[in-house]
Amino acid sequence: MNKYSVLVVDDEEKICKIVRIFLNLSPKIGNVVIAKDAIEAMLKLNNQEFDLIIVDKSMPNKTGLEFIENLRKSLKHSSTKVLLISGCLTKDDTLIAMKLGVKDILVKPFNRQRLMEKVSLLINLSSNS
């Protein structure tokens, strides 16, 4: 049975770690990799494929939206599922995200339940394959 692999990108390392622990509790998720910025994330993407990328909107240097834009430009990742997390949502950001094929946004602060709800909308986490 194939397990999902997830990439978590957030400049707040503690959030990455907490999200990783929550994701690993699901039997259907086999591999969680974390990155603290867009550059590290791109490196990880070169090495392996991911079923889902969870990325924070507000990051220094390259923002989450810029990262996703780059992602969409490459063939390999043009349709990878993306969950955007954000501390403050503006109308403009939402429109851009939607244009970039982001189907859902998770607003901070969030708890485990909300996180897993949104994740399962993007990748099937139910126990029957």
Binding site: I15, I18, F22, S58, G87, C88, P109
Partner: peptide
Amino acid sequence: TAGISHEISNPLTIASGSTELLEI
């Protein structure tokens, strides 16, 4: 308020998540 709630969102997420981890 917008600025503050943005800044607070990270530590709130960490505190909330950590509490849930403790429960687990």
